[in-house]
Design a protein around this nucleic acid. Sequence first.
DNA 1: ACCGAGATTGACAATCGTTCTCAACAAGCC
DNA 2: GGCTTGTTGAGAACGATTGTCAATCTCGGT
Lengths: 134, 134
Amino acid sequence: MTADDTAPRRTTRQREAVREALSASEEFVSAQSLHQSLRTGGSTVGLATVYRALAALAEDGEADALQSGGEVLYRACTPTHHHHLICRSCGRTVELEAAAVERWAGRVAAEHGFVELEHTVDIFGLCAECAAER
Amino acid sequence: MTADDTAPRRTTRQREAVREALSASEEFVSAQSLHQSLRTGGSTVGLATVYRALAALAEDGEADALQSGGEVLYRACTPTHHHHLICRSCGRTVELEAAAVERWAGRVAAEHGFVELEHTVDIFGLCAECAAER
DNA sequence: ACCGAGATTGACAATCGTTCTCAACAAGCC
DNA sequence: GGCTTGTTGAGAACGATTGTCAATCTCGGT
């Protein structure tokens, strides 16, 4: 079963459009809002296509996905593994490199005999500016 | 408005039932399945009530909530702050104390001027047993 | 123990994000 | 150019969660 599930991924106008729209966004966006943007921008992509394209992008490591309040948010990302510091109010995002945390995760998991790890480490908060507005 | 939103939380038969059912479960469960269990167990609680009770429990820190595959899972937890190491296959859960990670999170967030932190640190993997079965 | 105010409940409708279906379409390969 | 087959788009379908609202139950006061 580990056979070649050769992903015959074709490059289409729609997929490129989604990729670009995602890169253009500085912060996490939902599939829905990305679809809106594309429509507003003149494209005619379907909602389902946006969902599929985003899922593919995330699978290929070209985008990060995180769940927040019932919906999945996507954001173009650097290919290296990293985590996020996100402002709850304005959405500003900071990518974090956390070798120390990676090591910690690997160590505690190993202590309990776990393998094939995968983890989510996201920090939410209020950025300086948004905090000042309170 | 930051006034005392005194939670006039009344203790009712249903809420207690949910609390018990949750404590009885060793692993993360969805509101839906918990509702099933309760019904099967003879209780007549409504689905909406289970949702409300779980939300209240999570808010009071008596339960941990985490999103997994489109749904929210709950689990009774120790009152101290902690994180989880979860087996993707059998659902086994290990509570982790991670002072080091807490400090790290606080530090990097502070470096970027973030306040009012809140974070999710969950590690998924395969426990020793499940891994052996491959 | 009895009352009354108001929080809580439960059945069902409504919502919302996401996935599925399927005929029409287009990328890549000969 | 033609063929094969992944891809698209519109709308239906779906599943989880939340809202609605009259009936019910808790709890503080008496």
